[in-house]
Design a protein around this nucleic acid. Structure first.
Lengths: 221, 221
DNA sequence: GATACCATTTTGGGATACCAAATCGGTATC
DNA sequence: GATACCGATTTGGTATCCCAAAATGGTATC
């Protein structure tokens, strides 16, 4: 694996894992020494992460993207457009067997499953569902959106009930796809995304002082 | 302006303007000497153009993205999802004054307008319409899609009638937005995108031998 | 104590040097 | 004539060096 990919992957994990806080400044020299790579691959990795929206420029320098509540709302609208389009395509497929793989993925989570795993499966549900559509652009759009949502979802204060509800909604969407009911799948998915957004924004808005106390930059809606 | 932006902009223009043909190999050294920049900004520019889909990797090297007929179909689906979402948002706005700016842009084209201008206005119509929605992600998605379509649209053999029909369809969409009729705007936009795709794919498919004769790589649908 | 100023350090942008791997040419072999 | 082989060249990946601009920190001034 090239140094660039190494740096990109590790840096992305540190950002998504909040080891580097939202709003934090990054210097190429720090990354260089941190990962033992020279500035050339570091700069390449930064350029790629910039297009992912995980980092941005602050004048001349680099900054980890802040948690942006307004952006979360816009992403929800974007997600709804592309995910609904994808699920409609999938529901219209002859072979919808891929649905069972996703269902099995959901079922691999139970009460003993660690929170990281719930988090990952919650995002992969949407990504894999989009993949079934067979449309590369819809898939990429969903993957990008989920990446940008990842940190916010991780910071969200979720109770057990909310996790269970999301799990049930996911299964309901799959059931609609399974019986080729595109309209119901679309309706359920829209509602799921809207509810997810509401809980997310409310939670982070209520918790914004706590987040800022942890040194995280939070941009208001 | 930085060297990186210079190289990126000029290289993008050369690719979109077909001065460098689809499928052509690119070497960092050639770009370096062509634009008088060193490899550092050249590499940065290549990384950015890669995320735009204008170039790709061919093993270790760089290649200008070929004309991909299957991709054009997928982009149409993607476009429809995001553009319809955007136009629905716009139709629901209180202040839809931005529509008149776009209408004026359309009207700036007449029989004497050069083909380049028609081409640019045809893409800007969709981009500016998406911008009115106020959603950054929908805007970016439309901009990316139009960039990827740009070369294919330029290669399309379009008669006067087709240009006029597109112009009329654009105006009809604006009229629906103007009177806040989201459903009609969505319906007209969907039909416009589907028709545009059909003409595009048909034209390029029929012309693929001619395109290959010009040295352009064309991937079949 | 606040502020304006200047020397120092740090930073990102760019240029260049080096390397291993891939590619290319030419030649020998069959 | 086709093909296998081998050395020269080219290429992308990386490290390092230089530079101008910006940030920093200390100091003098009011």
């Amino acid at each position: 694996m090239s140094q660039m990919q190494n740096v990109e992957r590790q840096l992305r994990e540190m950002i998504l894992g909040l080891e580097i806080g939202p709003g934090e400044r990054l210097t190429e020299r720090w990354i260089e020494s941190r990962f033992g790579a020279s500035r050339t691959p570091v700069r390449a990795a930064l350029l790629r992460l910039e297009t992912e929206g995980l980092i941005g420029r602050d004048g001349r320098g680099w900054t980890v993207a802040p948690i942006n509540l307004a952006e979360l709302g816009q992403i929800a609208v974007y997600r709804e457009a592309v995910e609904v389009a994808a699920v409609r395509l999938t529901a219209a497929l002859e072979d919808r067997g891929g649905v069972e793989v996703i269902a099995a993925m959901l079922d691999s989570c139970d009460a003993d499953t660690p929170r990281e795993e719930w988090h990952r499966v919650g995002m992969d549900f949407h990504i894999e569902l989009a993949r079934l559509s067979g449309n590369e652009f819809l898939l990429r759009a969903v993957r990008d959106a989920m990446t940008r949502l990842s940190r916010a979802r991780w910071l969200e204060v979720r109770d057990e009930a909310a996790l269970g509800r999301a799990w049930a909604e996911h299964h309901a969407i799959l059931a609609a796809v399974r019986k080729a009911d595109a309209d119901e799948a679309a309706r359920l998915l829209s509602a799921h995304i809207a509810g997810s957004r509401d809980r997310l924004v409310t939670s982070l808005h209520d918790d914004r002082r706590g987040l800022r106390a942890r040194g995280f930059a939070v941009v208001a809606a």
